[in-house]
């Protein structure tokens, strides 16, 4: 590596690397359940990596490791110091470091999923970190949530409304949610899921597969290239 053509870690440099998919949404809406479901559905056909951003240490990462849906070493947990949205939006350095460490250790990968810590309706991923993003709501937060909007609901590439199995119990009207979401999302897709009943979240997995295919078409086959020092060292040790 010469001093002059050294990579500048430009996160926006997309050619020849995995699609980075952010999964955000309020606390407990089913983000980790969705990550597990995607690993179940996509694991057999794609090379995956997962980064979690727990509020408290490694709860989500531990859940995924126990679920046995992905090689535990392909999950890295990032700590966010009380500010989950900072780590995915304003200061993405630790998350990028984790993503690139996975790519360096296990690459080439097809898809790296970054789960945000549960947060509020304004938390979205920086484009420097996630190429595409899914925002996960659940019906138990009330059918008013899509109407309240916020950047997560309005701008995510895909809005997932999870736990439809609970709708009758909490009196949530899915038609209202669907109509309100469509009104603020300008034609971008919305999918209703019950990951409890469909453990592979198949409709979402299909959407992600389309995204990965389109990404590869546009940016070429992912290939392995040394990204940064941490990973080099991690690999060597």
């Amino acid at each position: 590596m010469g001093a002059h053509h050294d990579d500048l870690h430009d996160a926006a440099e997309p050619d020849g690397r995995a699609l980075r998919l952010g999964i955000g949404g309020p606390v407990g809406s089913g983000k980790t359940a969705l990550v597990a479901a995607l690993c179940r559905s996509l694991g057999p056909s794609m090379r995956l990596g997962v980064v979690t951003n727990d509020i408290y240490t490694t709860e989500d990462a531990d859940f995924l490791r126990r679920a046995g849906v992905i090689d535990p070493e392909r999950i890295l947990a990032v700590q966010t110091g009380c500010c989950p949205h900072t780590a995915i939006r304003d200061d993405i350095a630790a998350n990028l470091d984790a993503v690139e460490t996975l790519e360096e250790r296990f690459g080439p990968l097809d898809l790296v999923i970054v789960e945000s810590g549960g947060d509020n309706l304004t938390a979205t991923f920086s484009r420097g970190l996630a190429d595409r993003q899914i925002f996960v709501l659940d019906v138990s937060g009330g059918d008013k949530v899509p109407r309240k909007g916020g950047p997560g609901v309005t701008s995510a590439d895909l809005l997932v409304v999870n736990k439809t199995d609970l709708a009758p119990m909490v009196g949530a009207d899915l038609t209202v949610m669907s109509r309100d979401a469509a009104a603020v999302r300008d034609g971008k897709p919305v999918l209703f899921t019950s990951i409890r009943e469909d453990r592979g979240a198949h409709a979402v997995a299909e959407w992600v597969t389309d995204m990965v295919d389109a990404w590869r078409h546009e940016h070429g086959e992912p290939h392995h290239h040394p990204v940064h020092g941490a990973a080099q060292q991690a690999q060597a040790s």
Partner: peptide, 27 residues
């Protein structure tokens, strides 16, 4: 240090930062 180096190499690229990254790859 690793994260600061990553950020500063994009903000203020220099031969010295490149050398430092090469010297201490783990950060």
């Amino acid at each position: 240090g690793r994260l600061l180096l990553r950020t500063s190499r994009r903000m203020w690229p220099s031969a010295a930062l490149d050398t430092l990254a090469r010297a201490v790859p783990e950060g």
